[in-house]
Design a protein around this nucleic acid. Sequence first.
DNA 1: CCAATTATGTATAATAAAATACATAAGATT
DNA 2: AATCTTATGTATTTTATTATACATAATTGG
Lengths: 409, 409
Amino acid sequence: MKKPNQSIDATMIDGAGSLLSLIASGAATSRAELLEASGLSRATVTQRLNGLLASGLVCETQDTLPSGGRPTRVLAINAESGFVIVANIGETHIHLAAMDLQPAILAEMTLPFSITSGPDVTLAQIGDAISALAKDAQKTNGLFVGIGLSLPAPVDFKRGCVVGPSVLPGWDEFDIIGWLKRRFAVPVYVENDVNLMTICEHKRRFPAIDDMVFVKIGTGIGSGMIAGGRLFRGAQGAAGDIGHIQFLSDDAPLCRCGKFGCIEARAAGWAIARDLNARGFHAETARDVIDHVDQRKPEALMLLRAAGRTIGEVVSDVVSILNPSLIVIGGTLARGGDLLLSGIRELVYQRCLPLATRNLSIVLSMAQEDSALFGAAYLILDDLFGVAKVEQLLERYSNSDGVPLRADG
Amino acid sequence: MKKPNQSIDATMIDGAGSLLSLIASGAATSRAELLEASGLSRATVTQRLNGLLASGLVCETQDTLPSGGRPTRVLAINAESGFVIVANIGETHIHLAAMDLQPAILAEMTLPFSITSGPDVTLAQIGDAISALAKDAQKTNGLFVGIGLSLPAPVDFKRGCVVGPSVLPGWDEFDIIGWLKRRFAVPVYVENDVNLMTICEHKRRFPAIDDMVFVKIGTGIGSGMIAGGRLFRGAQGAAGDIGHIQFLSDDAPLCRCGKFGCIEARAAGWAIARDLNARGFHAETARDVIDHVDQRKPEALMLLRAAGRTIGEVVSDVVSILNPSLIVIGGTLARGGDLLLSGIRELVYQRCLPLATRNLSIVLSMAQEDSALFGAAYLILDDLFGVAKVEQLLERYSNSDGVPLRADG
DNA sequence: CCAATTATGTATAATAAAATACATAAGATT
DNA sequence: AATCTTATGTATTTTATTATACATAATTGG
């Protein structure tokens, strides 16, 4: 169905930011709820909402809610009124996606990646991919709302750069946001990949939980934290970096960070692969370890179970310190299922005080491989549609070429 | 100086809540700043501010700021326009204070306390003391704004009760807020004492720090956390309960919680006292331990230093998990000064990755004994003068008998 | 001492928002 | 099929706020 393009007049949507924010966050999805939540009068809500509807940013859905009289019409952000582009840098590939405002994937792209490339080369490649994805997405979704980049390293979120030495040589203190903003005139977000996976898990599966921890057990071990309903990053963006907490013993293994006895050196994918190799099995990656587990190799089962108990030791410290109500276990080794989980639960229930575990759940993640990409999309949209920045976003809409309207708009 | 009483007309302060909140939080302390921060027009700010000034809730201070032309007059909450009453339940005493809105102490009271008294008897005594303090404070400070109670036990802040078994038998799940509200028609807050000490430390000494941890080392060991600029409590209000994290060893001592190897069983006041007693010295409390330390007894010095290193182990886990920029050490054993601190620093810098300790400070608390009382006062005032509740507070003012005016009002 | 600058006070007209009222739409219930 | 209930649309009057303008106060600088 042909959708005409329509410029957005600034006066049409002036002052409507607070309504748009309420709809975007799900806090109000009907006229009555907008009335209640905004504190504005019915005439003012109607006037401003009509502007959002006319501009195509908001639409009336097919859904209605029975009310005993005339049914209530459900309102929603028009997912097609804009798009974001998100990228996840993995160990061997860079995965990018253009997503609408729901967010749902519009298009994807995968690039090869080598950690020796350095930031300039890598960001140039990412930039080219973003340009290509944006060109297509702009045809149907108008406004390029923002860019999100996921990195497997500690990230200072405010400054938008990697902090400290990491698995990405040459990236420490590199001005990623500055680099991307010189090429794209849109807001840019950079965040640690585990933090983004945590956001996705929270947003999609546990939005009502205020305090949770997501533990990613893959090649390495890391975690993300939701505290008081929001991602908690810490002073340098390194909160949740539990992989290098040490448990000392006579035979403490050397970690690749240079210390002895780190839980990563005991229980991460690379450590279990090392121990399998020492027993005559071939394994290099977390995935290889899971292959042996899937084949019911007793040695692999034993090492995974022991890894669960080791991880349980540090998770029990996390539970004592943070008092969350939920622990979600993800990452490649989480595919070990109850073998891993039962060890974690054993140590947590053994080590923690009853109060801390009284209402604690420990579950496996059901997230897909692309959860960091969706986490990045949620990060962008939550920020730009939030109360503090929504008026600026509306200004960008009114200054842009326009937004395609839905057929019923 | 004679201060006339004046009823507050509701229309006088109608709609002025946002301005009052801005002044109370320090976010705006001049007319120009109120203009900027509120988004209201100059005429509206003037009209509403005049209402607050006329009502006596806000006053023009003696301070002015040079501006190149007419100097800017500094505005402030009128500290004498209300009061709060706060109480701290200690091991042997209950300490109460009436405080004005600065907060500064107006009057104090100390009651004897026995943990066998149970909540009904204790709250009845506290209630009587509150009534007496309130009667006096009302004469000069008009509105009784709220009550804050500090407890040496884990507290579910939302429900206002102790959670789990603790050093207060009979208090678990007791409806403290309900009990006090039946007697006093004011907002009531209940919070863990270490959390309140943390709030006071943050508010007074480190208000610009977003992520810090306060560790209290006294008879027991506990901590409070500021995350993202706000107190972090966890799902049950038990965040920071680090005293029962265990470090296992062959000779792990039995803790009073029933587990072996808790850091409290190794490094708390009661544990050091036990170890001193085992060496022929008489010690029962953390204060006794510090007495021996002050007398330079080598055994006491050795045990305190070892305690510092044990505490450093768990603090290093806290630093890895939370990534704070500041650790503040308080409680009775903190009077051991550098003897304790050097051990903590040694283990933290040894165990943590360089990124986590790059910008980390570890310092001693300079707070007085009554920091939990001040923490409770800040808790009440921050909440009731906050954006969400300030209009309700103004309604209480307009429904009350009035507020004494300053002479220049 | 006077002029310039900036803050604050006061007043009025224009505009936005709220309050109020009447009308129609779309289900649900009888 | 008719009536009732609730949501939504539309219009007008009243009230609040903003914009604008003029005046005075209190410093600072020359």
